[in-house]
Design a protein around this nucleic acid. Structure first.
Lengths: 137, 137
DNA sequence: CATTGACCTAAAGTTAACTTGAACTTTTAT
DNA sequence: ATAAAAGTTCAAGTTAACTTTAGGTCAATG
């Protein structure tokens, strides 16, 4: 069903450097499925996982946090309520991103001398800043 | 108009440690307005700036990128088109975040044995992955 | 007027996420 | 059969964003 491919093929198809793949394996984020001689072999399913990892990182998760989302067998493991609360956290983050984006957009069209002092700009920032209370990320 | 406050007051009101404030000043991200004796004095307007910096960081900008958004005098400087394209970049990022969030939410309610192999999950991920082509962030 | 507490500088240390380098070992191509 | 290409390990190096430490300064308080 799934094909075993070597590290350069994984690298080629995913864009993730071989050195990073070894590093990820060391960290337990991904696992090779065996060796051919001395060379690692990966299951093609690693490509989905790498895709998820990349997205998760861009979404602001650390590698440790991402690793925590999987069982040692590589299956998404955390329970439903944990998944939901991660998703809720992300909602906050999305709100903040939108505020910054809107702030930038407003600044691009506003003639105030210093945008930080512009009341509209401040209103946009404040909206996002709310969630910011000691989040400890 | 604006009041000069010392580093501990800035720290107290912003939640940013004094060591970080000194570090930010060294990097040129913020500026003190003078000294009383040996002690730095800051204009209260630094609080808005710190708020913006925190938000920018949570939005995924590096300190250097944030610094680049201001003139040396601390005014948002980059031109309108640059501001707009930063905002457009953020739109992509928001899309990705939403995809990951939706993916997590779906996973919380899906009975597939491995979510990475679930076609709905994959569809959600793919939607975001598109923008991912060599972004070099 | 001596000590305490808030602040200062400069340099070194820390963590995450990688990358690079050195020294080997297999494969693979000629 | 041999040399280059592709992998491997393990250790050390790199960058960003801070924090910590050591030693010094100064204003205020007992």
């Amino acid at each position: 069903m799934y094909k075993a491919i070597d590290i350069s093929e994984v690298s080629k198809q995913s864009g993730v450097p071989a050195s990073t793949l070894r590093y990820y394996e060391e960290k337990g984020l991904v696992q090779s499925i065996g060796r051919r001689g001395i060379k690692r072999l990966f299951d093609t399913s690693i490509l989905n996982k790498l895709n998820f990892i990349a997205l998760g990182q861009r979404a602001g998760f650390s590698l440790d946090e991402i690793a925590d989302m999987f069982t040692h067998q590589g299956v998404l493991k955390i329970d439903r309520s944990q998944l939901m609360s991660k998703a809720d956290e992300m909602d906050k983050q999305i709100k903040e991103l939108k505020a910054v984006r809107d702030g930038l957009r407003h600044a691009a069209n506003c003639d105030a001398p210093s945008h930080l002092e512009c009341s509209k700009f401040q209103r946009l920032m404040k909206a996002a800043g709310k969630a910011q209370k000691r989040d400890k990320r």
